[in-house]
Simulated assay, not measured.
Amino acid sequence: MSDAATTAPISVLVVDDDFRVAAVHAGFVGQVPGFEVRGEAHTAAEALTAIEGARPDLVLLDLYLPDGNGLDLLRTLRGMPEPPDVIVISAANDVASVRASLQLGAVNYLVKPFTFADFSARLVAFRDAQARMAELPGEATQADIDRIFGMRRPVAAPDRPVEAARLAPTLRLVYEAVARGDAQSATEVGAIVGISRATAQRYLTQLEQSGMLRLELRYGATGRPEHRYFVQRG
């Protein structure tokens, strides 16, 4: 596994037609060690200009764009001398879109809506595979190749979340506040438990990553979406 602290961060361009969703995805990227957001784009034209100018290592690509299908942009990128890698992030779950994305070289595909844990797992898998390739000499053995391709698959989340009784005291209070239905946001949890909103957000993110809570984004008329947390059932 790579040491993200000692290597240059992987630069990322977030492409999504909804500026609120793009901001959320950019925020998610910022929470994964070893990555930095190079920019956001909301149309295919903006994305192509940003890619040609900023030369990101990785593009998080929505397929539904106002001036064309993301697959057309992916085809254009394949014609570049040194194209960025692409992870498709889209609500499109039809087989044709998935097949075309694979044929055009997308390294992964994530269907909306998704959890931060799902998102993070794909970025970590990509980061570690890139680091492994950088460590190889001029030639790779079949074992090296098998390992790299295997590393691009995200590690599955555990089937059983951690039991609430085994949580640290404050973490358990945060979980119980959500489980009772007393709170759904970091602000509400902080007020109930007696901690700051930032601290509550860290605990909520930890519980969401462990599979005990799930995150839902609630959109209002304006502004960024609100993060609401619920107990993960089943």
Rank of each mutant, 00 (worst) to 15 (best):
2 S>N: 13
6 T>C: 09
7 T>R: 15
13 L>E: 12
13 L>G: 08
15 V>P: 06
21 V>Y: 06
30 G>M: 11
30 G>W: 11
34 G>I: 08
39 G>K: 06
42 H>I: 07
45 A>W: 01
48 L>K: 05
53 G>M: 05
54 A>L: 13
55 R>V: 09
57 D>C: 02
58 L>V: 03
62 D>G: 08
62 D>H: 09
64 Y>G: 07
64 Y>I: 10
66 P>T: 08
71 L>N: 01
72 D>Q: 12
77 L>R: 03
79 G>C: 04
82 E>N: 01
83 P>V: 00
83 P>M: 02
86 V>T: 10
86 V>H: 04
87 I>E: 10
90 S>H: 05
94 D>R: 13
95 V>P: 01
95 V>W: 12
101 S>D: 04
103 Q>N: 13
104 L>W: 04
105 G>Y: 10
108 N>K: 04
119 F>M: 06
120 S>I: 00
121 A>R: 11
121 A>S: 15
121 A>T: 07
122 R>M: 14
122 R>E: 12
124 V>T: 15
124 V>E: 14
127 R>C: 11
130 Q>T: 07
136 L>S: 06
136 L>K: 10
137 P>K: 01
137 P>L: 12
143 A>H: 04
145 I>T: 11
147 R>A: 14
149 F>T: 13
150 G>N: 08
153 R>E: 15
155 V>T: 15
158 P>Q: 04
159 D>V: 11
160 R>D: 09
161 P>F: 07
162 V>E: 12
165 A>N: 13
167 L>D: 07
167 L>F: 05
172 R>A: 08
173 L>E: 14
174 V>D: 01
179 A>R: 15
180 R>I: 05
180 R>P: 00
181 G>A: 04
182 D>G: 04
183 A>W: 00
185 S>K: 04
186 A>R: 02
187 T>H: 06
191 A>R: 15
192 I>P: 00
192 I>N: 01
195 I>M: 05
196 S>F: 09
198 A>Q: 14
198 A>W: 05
202 R>L: 09
206 Q>H: 12
209 Q>N: 11
209 Q>K: 12
210 S>T: 05
210 S>V: 05
211 G>M: 07
212 M>H: 02
215 L>Q: 09
215 L>V: 09
216 E>P: 02
217 L>H: 12
219 Y>N: 10
221 A>M: 13
222 T>K: 14
222 T>R: 15
223 G>E: 06
224 R>M: 13
226 E>K: 12
229 Y>E: 03
229 Y>S: 01
230 F>Y: 14
